[in-house]
């Protein structure tokens, strides 16, 4: 197992190089460049200042050379400065990651808490009213756009009923009460969408497992139905769900752009989209690298969880 993990770890290095190089090249193919993107409509910069900027950002050099500059600095943890705010990228990320993690993880947990029981219920009571209601909600969760749902929640719970604040963010560590109040609406949006995915996956996987011989055997030997479902059924049905969850968890760091925008949450997603639009290469590169690392890491964790769930899986 250890040898496997070391090997997987080493395999990520060329992968990350490829991902960052591709991102870098794609960004350079985007129309516009970081210097013109700095300006509002109607503003101008002297040509000599534009040139100085381009030189400072190495935009006057070939793409592989530019990538080389970036890589050399990134190797020692220096991701450069944002071309928009000219603050160090690491500082920008440090200020954005807590919000993204807080909202993302809470949404993830909410998604599981709703999705797992709902998926099981839909499978156990297959073709009943419960199944139909769960399926309806999960289809809606995937189909209803987050921006619409978020705005509806704000209009209902903030503007109409005045139960919850409309938007904003507070760190759970600095003011837990306020933070929880502020989290309810965005976490509902993320959680519902995520629960829809989990429910659908788990329902179909459970339906298949519950038809297996060993489930029939378990029932035949008189095991309590709860034990049959939760222990024998769920554990075997979880494998495909774990794959999806691993991917979703790995992507949490990329942020939830729509939710962060609607609820004015200063997260990584908003930063990423804003940076792509303004050709802020250093920021985009750092976020892509961070998300790629996180996805790779979660893939490895998923593999480990597979082995834990199914003793037949062994890595060598």
């Amino acid at each position: 197992m250890t040898a496997y993990l070391v090997r997987r770890g080493l395999q990520t290095i060329p992968l990350l190089l490829l991902v960052t190089f591709l991102t870098f090249s794609l960004l350079l193919f985007l129309p516009g460049d970081p210097v013109t993107s700095l300006l509002s409509q109607g503003e101008t910069l002297d040509p000599e200042i534009v040139e100085a900027y381009r030189k400072e950002l190495h935009l006057d050099e070939p793409i592989p050379v530019q990538y080389g500059y970036w890589l050399r600095r990134a190797m020692v943890g220096d991701f450069g400065d944002s071309t928009q705010t000219r603050k160090p990228v690491s500082e920008e990320l440090r200020s954005r990651i807590p919000a993204t993690l807080q909202i993302g993880l809470a949404g993830f947990v909410a998604g599981l808490l709703i999705g797992v029981p709902a998926g099981i219920a839909a499978a156990v009571w297959h073709n009943t009213v419960i199944d139909r209601v769960v399926t309806m909600f999960s289809v809606a969760g995937v189909a209803v756009p987050g921006f619409w749902f978020g705005i509806m929640l704000i209009l209902l719970f903030s503007v109409k009923l005045r139960w919850l604040p409309a938007l904003g963010f507070e760190r759970i560590t600095s003011n837990p009460g306020e933070a929880l109040k502020l989290m309810i609406l965005p976490v509902t949006v993320i959680g519902w969408e995520l629960s829809a995915v989990v429910t659908r996956q788990l329902r179909s996987s459970m339906l298949e497992v519950l038809r297996q011989d060993y489930i029939r055997t378990a029932r035949a030997k008189g095991l309590h139905e709860r034990r049959v479902v939760w222990l024998h059924g769920l554990r075997n049905a979880l494998l495909p769900v774990v794959t999806v969850l691993g991917l979703l968890l790995g992507r949490i760091l990329a942020g939830a752009v729509v939710v962060e925008t609607i609820f004015a949450i200063p997260g990584v997603g908003r930063l990423l989209v804003g940076s792509v639009r303004t050709n802020d290469f250093p920021v985009v590169q750092a976020i892509v690298l961070m998300v790629a690392l996180s996805v790779v890491f979660m893939n490895i964790v998923t593999d480990v969880v597979y082995a834990a769930l199914d003793p037949r899986i062994r890595y060598s």
Partner: peptide
Amino acid sequence: RIIPDSTAAFAALQTGD
């Protein structure tokens, strides 16, 4: 407060946020 979505900003005004 930096609120990029105008509908959300208007909601925040209506709620007194």
